[in-house]
Every structure is written in C-alpha cells, then in structure tokens.
C-alpha cells in the first residue's frame, strides 16, 4: 500500500479532513457566511454599532450555553438555567430597592446555589436523569418566584445603575459586558482544558464506570458541576436584566432552548465526553446573527421559528458529518 501515500489526496477530502481536525473552522466560516448574507440583504448594516449590539445580545446566551456545555460534557443537561437566571434577576431588581447592593447580590445568588445543590444531589447521589431533575427544579423555582412576587408587589423594582451600565453600556466601541464575559470565558476554557476538575468532567462523560473505579467521587464532581452551572446562570440573570431592563417572571426562559442549541452547534456532544467552550461561544454568535437575519427578513413569527429549528437541525447534522470523518 505504499503507493497510496504517493497518490495525492483529492482536494475535497483534504478540505474535509482539515475541517475535521479543526472543528472551529467550519463554524467560523458559517458565521462569516451569515454576516455576509446579512450585509447583502441590508447593505451597510454591518458596522461597529451593529457588531457591538450583536455581541451584547450574544453574551448572556453564551454564558448560559457554557452551563450547557459543562453539563453536557458529563452527559447531562441543565434546563433550570432559565429559571435560575430569572430568579436572580428578579430578586436583584426588587431587593435593591430596600437593601444594600452587596446584600441584594447575595440574596440574588442564594436561589442559584440552592437549585444547583438540589440538582447536583439529585443527579449525583440519587442518579435521577438530569433532564428530569433540572426541569423539576425549574418548575419549583418558578412557583417560588410567583409566591415571592406577591410579597414585593408593593415595593416595586428598579434596575441597579451598574447592571444597566454593564448590560447595555458601550465604551469606545466595546460593550461593557465583555469586561465580565472575557474573564469568565477564559476561566471556563482554562478550567475545562487545564485543571483537574475539567478533566474529571470529560472523564465522567466519557466513561463513568471507569472514572468511578479509578477512585473519583462521582457525586462530588456532579454536585460541584451543577452548583457552578447555577451560579453562572445567576450571574447571567444579573447581566441580562441590565440588558433587557424589564424584570418579569419569564425573563430568561426564552434563552434556555437556544442555549442548548448553541452548545450543540458548537460541537459539544450531548452524550458527553466531547466538546469545548470556544465552539459554544461561536455557536451563540451564530444563533444571535441568525435571529437578526430572520428578523430583518420580516418573516412572520411562525416562519421564523420553523427556520430556526430547521437550521439548528441542519447545522448539527452537517457538523456531525464533518467531525465523524475523523
């Protein structure tokens, strides 16, 4: 078979292999294509302000998708992130009226820790399917929030100035939210790639039995993971309320399914053990640009959702095709 080494590999195959080796490349190409389509449809729309705006809206989605990435690495999923984000945002907006900002922040983070802890114990100790566990806790959380809303209905709500600054402000072309997101993203990428905890997440997702037999305390890893995920969701809530500026009981709920989609598009396997956060960030950007694109096309809401679903499906299928070539 020595001749096969000499025969030049066909160009198409070479491209495919190149893309399979660098899964980020096709994603970036897709993102660029979307932006180019946008520019063709509305010449001049792609400018500094538009880019800042897109990044602003992509950041909360990207952080929530980070929660999904980390949980999906272990073969799980966290559907309670929407409720957690909404809860911390709502509590922050209502407690800031009467409390010191630091105390309001702590109060806002409390439900996040609690829900994360319950999720972690349910999944890690009792071995409940993460999908069910997190859906259940999000149901409980929503109920608690509704009860809580009654108690603060008289005191009203306001958006703290620094959150509005962080969420919507733009300093010399760069959205302020990047101040929060860049360190956070760096931390996630670093944790996943370079620390023991990150390795454990991959290991648990890849082969749980082997991991446990090699002495890893499964429940500790899972509990730590879901608490981290919830904390990230809580922080996202605070950022998102600064961006949206209208506290409501379903504030971050529309972000949940797109966050799963972003992680999947970004190349994280829903069965665990494979993926990373950089892909997820690009996935979140793709989804945000896609939403803009569909809005600009002035489609009815229904057609927009159909297209959104089809594109998520198509991108995932195409991506699997490319990666599986390896």
């Amino acid at each position: 078979m020595s001749t096969s080494a000499i025969t030049p590999v066909p160009f198409g195959r070479r491209i495919k292999r190149f893309m399979a080796d660098r899964p980020l490349v096709p994603l970036i190409i897709l993102l660029v294509i979307l932006v180019v389509i946008l520019q063709i449809l509305r010449p001049g729309i792609v400018n500094e302000r538009w880019i800042a705006n897109t990044i602003k809206f992509a950041i909360p989605l990207a952080i929530l998708a980070g929660c999904q990435t980390m949980t999906m690495l272990t073969g799980g999923i966290d559907l309670s992130v929407g409720t957690v984000a909404t809860m911390s945002a709502f509590i922050m907006a209502t407690q800031i009226v009467s409390q010191d900002p630091a105390i309001a922040f702590l109060l806002a983070m409390m439900p996040a820790v609690l829900i994360g802890l319950v999720n972690g114990i349910g999944v890690g100790v009792f071995r409940v399917h993460p999908l069910i566990m997190t859906l259940g806790t999000s149901l409980i959380g929503t109920g608690c929030l509704q009860v809580y809303q009654r108690t603060v209905i008289a005191s009203g709500a306001k958006i703290p100035g620094f959150l509005a600054w962080l969420g919507t402000g733009v300093t010399s072309g760069f959205p302020n939210a990047l101040l929060l997101f860049v360190p956070l993203a760096a931390l996630i990428v670093f944790t996943l790639a370079r620390t023991g905890f990150g390795r454990l997440l991959y290991a648990v997702g890849d082969n749980e039995r082997a991991t446990r037999l090699s002495g890893v305390q499964y429940w500790q890893v899972i509990t730590a993971l879901y608490v981290t995920s919830s904390l990230l969701a809580g922080i996202t809530g605070l950022l998102y309320i600064g961006l949206i500026k209208a506290p409501s009981l379903s504030l971050a709920e529309p972000l949940v399914l797109p966050s799963v989609a972003a992680a999947v598009i970004g190349g994280t396997s829903i069965f665990g053990g494979r993926g990373g956060y950089t892909g997820t960030i690009i996935g979140a950007l793709i989804l945000t640009v896609l939403t803009t694109l569909l809005t600009i096309l002035q489609m009815p809401e229904g057609a927009r959702r159909i297209l959104f679903g089809l594109i998520v499906l198509f991108v995932t299928a195409a991506y699997l095709r490319i990666v599986e070539e390896r």
Binding site: V260, A261, S269, R305, F308, G309
Partner: peptide
C-alpha cells in the same frame, strides 16, 4: 437519517412545529 441525537432532533422539531402552529 441524520444520526443527530434524538434530543436535538425533537428540540429542533419543537421549534418547527411551534412555528407551524403559529402560521395556522
């Protein structure tokens, strides 16, 4: 056919069907 995980396919279909319902 696509070999995409069932969670993702049905999630995508959730959007599609919801959209179709809104069109009807």
């Amino acid at each position: 056919v696509t070999r995409v995980p069932d969670i993702v396919v049905t999630l995508a279909m959730l959007f599609v069907l919801q959209g179709a319902a809104l069109l009807v």
